[in-house]
Design a protein around this nucleic acid. Structure first.
Lengths: 265, 265
DNA sequence: AAATTAGTTCCACTATCTGGAACTTACTTT
DNA sequence: AAAGTAAGTTCCAGATAGTGGAACTAATTT
C-alpha cells in the first residue's frame, strides 16, 4: 500500500469524510446559492443521508444556511485557510522576491503551487489596487493553460506528467488554448528547454504571462512565479524580456530555501 | 429538536466529521508544525484511529505532510475559502462603503462577522500596503476585546449574549482588556446606548478602534465595521469623532442590503 | 382547497470507524 | 557498530455511526 503522498493522484476512498467535503466543494464551486434539492440532484445521494450530512457540515461551520434556505460556504473555512496561508513557508520566503519582481516589471506577480491538476495561487502583488485585493489568492486554475501551470507540468518527471494529463479534462477557454495533447506535449518540451513558460491568452482572452518553476533541493517542483499583464500593454517582446527576470526571481527563492535549510540543521 | 441555525452554540455531535476537522483545526492553529506524536498527545485518540484519520485528511488535501513528517494545513482549504470569500454577499455590498470610510479617515477599515465567540474578519482596506495584504482576512479574534466583537455582543439579544459569554474564556491580552464579567456587561450596556463600540488597546497594545454593528431587516446582527489605528496617531478624541462616520457606514451597508432585497422579490 | 413540490424525521440495516496490540522503520545512545 | 528506544504504520474483531427507503410535515403553486 502506498503511503498517501501529497503528490499522488488517487480517487479518494476516504469514506465519510470524502463525501462530506465533496459537498462543501459542491456548494463552494457552484455559481449560485444552492437549495437542498439542487444539492440532492447533483450529489447523487438519498435524501435522508444528504440531509444529515448537510446538518453536520452546518454544525461544524463549514457550511451555512441563509435565510432563504440556501447553503453557502461557511466562515470557518476562512479561518482555517487564513492560518494555512499565514504559515506557508514558501509564501513567506518568496514574498520579498515577488515584490522585487513587481518593482522591476510593474505588472502583477503571482505565486502558485500545483495541487492535482490545478494551480492554486498562494500570493500575488498587484500594480495598484486593480480590482479587489486578495481576490485571486486561493483561486484554482487548470495547469495546462496557465503560465505557472505549464511551468509546473514541464517540471514534473515524465510518468507523473503523463498520469496528470490523463486525469485532466482539456477544454478551450479561449481560442488560443492548447487543446491537442500532442501540441501540449510539444509546448512542455519547449518549456523544458527554455526554462520558462508563456501563457499567450490561453486561459483568459487578453491576458499574457511568463512563468518559471521553483524547485527544492531534490529538484522536485514546489511552486512557480509569474508576471501577468493585459495583452494591449504586454507584447510578445515584453514577455521574452521578462523571462530572465522571472527565472532569476525563481532562483532567488530557491536560494532562500537552501539558505534556510543550511543553518537550520 | 432545534434545527441547527448558524448562530446556535452547541457542542458538536457531528461524529466522524467533527473529529476530522477538529484535527485540521488543531494543525492549523498550532504555532509550529506538528509531527504525528505531537498530534497524538493533543488529540487524545488512539494511535491507529488517529493515523487513519490523518491519512484521510491528507488524501483529501485538507492537510499535507511535508518532508520532515510534519503535518500542515492543506492547499485545498485555500481553494475552498477563496470561493467562500468571493461569494459573500455582505462583503460585496459592504466593499464600497469600507473604501469610503477609509477615504474619510485614512486609517485601516475592517469588516467582521461573529462566529460562536469569535469575530472573523471578512475584509479590510489598508492605509498603504502596511504589512502584508490579506494577512488579516479570515483571522479570528475573540469578541469580548475587539471593537467589532463588542459591537456584536451588544447587538445580541440578552439570552444569546449570556450564553455566549458563558462559553467565552476571558483572559487579559493587554493591561486594558476587560476581564471582569460585570465590567464587560456594563461596557456592553454603554455600547447599546451609544450605538458604537470602542477598543482602547484591549486586544493589542497600541491599537485603538471604533466599530458599529450592521443589522439585517429583522434587526439581527450580521456583521460589523471598524476603523483601527495606532494609539500614537489615534487619540480618544479621534475615536469619538469617527464614531458617527462608522455608524453612517454601517447604516449605508444596511440600506444596501434592504435595497437589494426590495427589487429582488 | 387540492395538488405538487420542498424539506425533515424515523429506524432497521450495515458499512465504516474504532482502538488495542503487534509490527516496522528511523533515530539515539553506549 | 550494535543494541535500545522512540516514532510511525498495519491489522482485525467488535462497536459505532452512517445509510437510505419511506412516511411525515411545511411551503408553494394551480
Amino acid at each position: 500500500m502506498t503511503k498517501a503522498s501529497t503528490s499522488d493522484i488517487v480517487s479518494p476512498s476516504t469514506g465519510t469524510l470524502g463525501k462530506a467535503i465533496a459537498l462543501v466543494e459542491l456548494v463552494a464551486l457552484a455559481d449560485r446559492p444552492l437549495r437542498f434539492t439542487d444539492i440532492l440532484d447533483r450529489a447523487g445521494q438519498p435524501r435522508g443521508t444528504l440531509h444529515r450530512q448537510l446538518c453536520h457540515l452546518v454544525e461544524e461551520g463549514l457550511l451555512e444556511m441563509n435565510a432563504d434556505h440556501c447553503y453557502e460556504p461557511g466562515l470557518r473555512l476562512l479561518k482555517l485557510a487564513s492560518r494555512a496561508w499565514g504559515r506557508s513557508d514558501l509564501r513567506r520566503l518568496a514574498a520579498p522576491h515577488l515584490q522585487a519582481l513587481h518593482d522591476a516589471t510593474g505588472e502583477t506577480i503571482h505565486l502558485g503551487m500545483l495541487r492535482d491538476t490545478e494551480i492554486i495561487y498562494l500570493d500575488k502583488v498587484e500594480s495598484r489596487q486593480a480590482v479587489r485585493m486578495a481576490s485571486q489568492i486561493g483561486r484554482a486554475s487548470p495547469a495546462y493553460c496557465t503560465g505557472v501551470g505549464k511551468a509546473a507540468l514541464a517540471a514534473l518527471p515524465q510518468p507523473r506528467l503523463d498520469a496528470l494529463l490523463d486525469l485532466t479534462e482539456i477544454r478551450p477557454f479561449t481560442q488560443h488554448t492548447i487543446v491537442e495533447r500532442q501540441a501540449l506535449e510539444a509546448e512542455i518540451a519547449a518549456i523544458r528547454r527554455a526554462g520558462h513558460a508563456f501563457d499567450r491568452e490561453e486561459h483568459e482572452a487578453g491576458i499574457r504571462c511568463v512563468a518559471a518553476a521553483i524547485f527544492d533541493q531534490e529538484r522536485t517542483f514546489i511552486g512557480g512565479v509569474s508576471v501577468t499583464g493585459p495583452a494591449y500593454r504586454v507584447g510578445e517582446e515584453a514577455l521574452r524580456n521578462w523571462a530572465p527576470l522571472v527565472r532569476a526571481a525563481a532562483n532567488a527563492v530557491m536560494e532562500e530555501i537552501a539558505a534556510r535549510l543550511g543553518p537550520k540543521a
